[in-house]
Design a protein around this nucleic acid. Structure first.
Length: 157
DNA sequence: ACCGTGATTGAG
DNA sequence: TCAATCACGGTT
């Protein structure tokens, strides 16, 4: 997903496309940093469904967090979108784009007005490191280098 | 370092 | 019921 475009269509039919520059992986039932690690609940049940659906949840009562379910049914993995070009921070991203729980459970598709597509740019310098804000996920999972980002792109014209 | 803010969760 | 938690962001 890094380097791909996050695309949004508003009520007027205008489209906005931003390059995804930072993501985090949340990897299955074992991942103590993942909502899914405690089993299926009302909030996270979407993660246990098929891949390619948006998973939104409210964090700290204020910030909508945008994820894409990536694991197939009963394999609750997801990718958390933390930043794009122009917008840093997962909460600021959704706020800037007007993304909230209206997209929760919708498919990654233009029909949902929120979707991914290939970009004309490719990341040149992908880096990885520990995920943010998961210090309480235990000594192993809090340190996994499951955050990915880049700063340079090559334009394919 | 601290706190706003409110849904979610599991315990009782 | 209820208290603790929380994949953040802005301010001290």
């Amino acid at each position: 997903m890094l380097g791909r475009n996050l695309c949004l269509e508003n009520e007027s039919g205008q489209r906005r496309k931003l390059i995804i520059t930072e993501t985090e992986a949340y990897h299955g039932l074992d991942d103590l940093a993942s909502h899914a690690s405690k089993g299926k609940t009302e909030r996270n049940k979407l993660m246990f469904g098929p891949a390619n659906f948006w998973y939104l949840y409210l964090c700290y009562g204020m910030h909508w967090m945008l994820n894409l379910v990536t694991g197939e049914r009963d394999n609750p993995s997801a990718v958390f979108i933390r930043a794009t070009d122009e917008i840093s921070g997962p909460g600021r991203l959704t706020k800037a784009l007007g993304i909230d729980n209206r997209f929760h459970g919708l498919k990654n598709s233009p029909l949902s007005k929120l979707w991914l597509e290939d970009s004309t740019s490719k990341p040149l310098d992908i880096q990885r490191g520990p995920r943010i804000g998961v210090e309480n996920a235990g000594p192993v999972w809090s340190k996994k280098a499951y955050r990915f980002w880049f700063s340079k792109v090559s334009s394919l014209g």
